[in-house]
Design a protein around this nucleic acid. Structure first.
Length: 532
RNA sequence: GCUGGGUUCGUAUAACGGUUAGUACUCAAGAUUCUCAAUCUUGCAAUAGGAGUUCGAUUCUCCUACCCAGUACCA
């Protein structure tokens, strides 16, 4: 029977969402949308000790910034749906609010002989682990050891009853069946087989906080929420046999979701998975949004660092997946069309910060000058520049008052767009079109500030000013070049020195461009400021 | 250690069992310009190693090496 596609992203609110997590969410989202299905956001907060305030809100905001909008789990106001309703029969979507659901399922497994009560103290288990380690082995609570531990399998029914009643730190463990080869299929990795004798009896439910562990909560919720495909990180692959066995124990095999395990995102250099430290060390964000932790330490975010969400999403989508064509630029719509799980790479992908920047540059270039202008204005305001007027107002520039018209800014954007990766780069390359240089690059001063060159610059400038030539780019540019050429002065030296006087550095925008933007008056002012 | 997963230029990746192993990023050189950037052109650079199957292996099988994950009353 064909079921409606329903996939979920189920993060744990233990900190900010890592870019690898965003990729997992993205692939889930793309898969759901491609199949006309639903994308569900479920919060797996069953670990009361690791809960981090603000993490859930961060996850929701990060996904929204990326354009990954859940169909369920978060309502239109961005609030979690707290109770089940006609629109949301599967609510709530926060596992801490579903705690009442899980215990009965755990007990059901005990009744049917698939699970048992375990009374071992943390200290006792710790001791057994240490003992095994001394013998060079790994302790597994399972087939070979469960008969030697304190649980309802070894204790009398009366004793079990008593402990259940009188103590409050017992757990329910899954009784992993012996000598069984679990045959599994993964949408990305293909067929996998594991012998259950190598597996342990995982804790499913804890009396101490009356909360399930991941394994139980996950299977129960995926079943109740009618999930059809589970697309998650590779770290879950080792527990896939357990999950298969749980579906079997519950008798839910016929509606068991299909599984796809995504490889991890690796650090750019060296080995190992991408971590917060790598980002700090190499100067790139690992988080979609900026995050300030409890100690007040700030981690960079793609959003705050100036990346466009479309570029971030596009870059992430291509990390471990490819369309089978040479197309590299994809809108979300195109990704939904082209995405396919069997084109997802099995091996982990090393993240490449340079490629991320390349994507941003491509998206920046594709944006209209008008849009970029609006994005640039806040950067200008931070620099004390006032932007006046509207897209329909005439171009004007008042250098003394640091006031420029919207269209002047748009012209600047059009000029420097090609040399930028981020919007803030507009300022780096075009500050001289708004303000006179505050200082001069010493190296360039040493190289070009020679008496004879200064004299040539002075005369060339005087020529432009005296002839009253128009400061249109073409006219002023050719007039200047013709003059220098006619004098048989070294073009490069004079031009570089002029640029140094005007902008504070010998390299940068073309002289003709600079002149056409600043006009004769500011030209004169800057020359005298530079003591020309 | 054990169990599972993985391995094509530095990076991301392409290649019905048959290609001079392709593309993009990075890097280098050249062209262009008053400089820088951009742009254009060119270049550097890979099938982890070894067996086997096959007329033929990047592709299938096995072994070795290396990498990753899991091995919690965390997810």
């Amino acid at each position: 029977m064909e079921r409606k596609t329903r996939v979920r992203f189920a993060p744990s609110p233990t900190g900010p969402l890592h870019m690898g997590g965003v990729r997992t969410a993205l692939y889930n989202y793309l898969y759901a949308k491609q199949h006309g299905g639903d994308f569900i956001l479920r919060i797996e907060d069953t670990d009361s000790h690791r809960f981090v305030p603000g993490a859930e809100a961060y996850i929701i905001e990060a996904l929204r910034w990326c354009g990954i909008v859940p169909d369920e789990g978060v309502d239109a106001d961005g609030k979690m749906v707290e109770t089940a309703s006609a629109q949301h029969p599967h609510a709530p979507y926060r596992q801490s609010q579903r705690r009442a659901i899980y215990r009965q399922y755990a007990e059901q497994l005990v009744e049917n002989g698939y699970a048992y009560y375990a009374f071992d103290s943390a200290a006792a288990l710790e001791e057994r682990r240490a003992e095994a380690e001394r013998a060079g082995q790994t302790f597994l609570y399972g087939l070979t050891t469960r008969d030697t531990l304190r649980n309802s399998l070894t204790l009398s029914a009366e004793e079990t009853e008593r402990l259940l009643r009188e103590t409050d730190s017992w757990t329910i463990r899954f009784k992993m069946p012996a000598h069984t080869v679990v045959k599994m299929d993964d949408l990305i990795r293909g067929h996998i087989e594991v012998n259950t004798d190598t597996l342990d009896d995982k804790v499913l439910w804890k009396r101490a906080d009356e909360l399930p562990t991941y394994h139980l909560a996950n299977i129960v919720d995926d079943h109740l929420m009618e999930i059809t495909e589970v697309i998650r990180g590779e770290e879950w692959l080792p527990s896939l046999p357990l999950h298969y066995m749980l579906y079997k124990a519950f008798g839910w095999e016929d509606t068991m979701p299909r599984f796809a395990h995504l490889s991890l995102l690796l650090k750019p250099v060296g080995n190992g998975k991408l971590s917060k430290r790598d980002g700090d060390k190499m100067g790139f964000p690992v988080f979609p949004l900026q995050w300030v932790n409890a100690e007040g330490e700030t981690s960079h975010g793609y959003r705050e660092d100036g990346y466009f969400p479309e570029a971030f999403v596009n870059m992430l989508a291509m990390l471990g997946w490819n369309p089978g064509t040479e197309q590299e630029l994809f809108s979300m719509e195109e990704l939904i069309q082209a995405f396919s799980l069997n084109k997802v790479q099995k091996a982990g992908a090393k993240f490449n910060p340079d490629k991320a920047k390349w994507y941003n540059r491509e998206y920046l270039r594709a944006k209209r000058d008008e849009e970029l202008t609006d994005l640039f204005i806040p950067v200008l305001q931070e620099q004390g520049i006032t932007v006046t007027g509207c897209p329909k107002c005439p171009v004007s520039a008042d250098f003394a008052a640091k006031e420029f018209s919207w269209n002047y800014v748009r012209n600047v954007v059009a000029l420097v767009k090609e040399r930028a990766t981020f919007v803030r780069d507009f300022w780096t390359s075009a500050a001289c079109l708004f303000t006179a240089p505050a200082e001069f690059v010493q190296k360039d001063v040493d190289k070009f500030w020679k008496p004879e060159i200064k004299e040539q610059v002075r005369q060339a400038a005087a020529h432009l000013l005296d002839t009253g030539v128009s400061f249109e780019k073409e006219t002023v540019g050719s007039s200047l070049e013709e003059y220098i050429r006619a004098q048989e002065w070294p073009m490069g030296k004079v031009m570089n020195a002029l640029r140094l006087a005007l902008t504070g550095a010998a390299s940068g925008l073309g002289i003709a461009d600079i002149l056409s933007f600043i006009g004769p008056e500011e030209f004169r002012a800057r020359l005298s400021a530079a003591e020309m």
